[in-house]
Amino acid sequence: MDFISILSIFVLACFVGYYVVWSVTPALHTPLMAVTNAISSVIIVGALVASAAAGVPGAKWLGLAAVVLASVNIFGGFAVTERMLAMYKKKDKAPSRKEGK
């Protein structure tokens, strides 16, 4: 891909990000940070490329170290987000004595 197509994707994705993130409810801003954190670990793609390649041992080990770091983030980030989101509950229909007074 040439630079301009990549740049186009990038710029358009910034706009998508802008509108999508403004629509996130403030109550979920902490899960938002946790999940963005998990997905930014897509950098693992670069780490995998580095560790898959033969030839330069230094690059391979750095790549493997990056794979570990990114995996911590991916698994930890998604799991902690899942855990948080599971806690958000709607009001249950249990009748409270609203008309009590």
């Binding site: 998508v16 938002l32 997905i39």
Partner: peptide, 12 residues
């Protein structure tokens, strides 16, 4: 994937 994600997280 990395560019889209980066842009999303960056704007977020």
């Amino acid at each position: 994937a990395m560019i889209i994600t980066g842009a999303l997280v960056g704007s977020s």
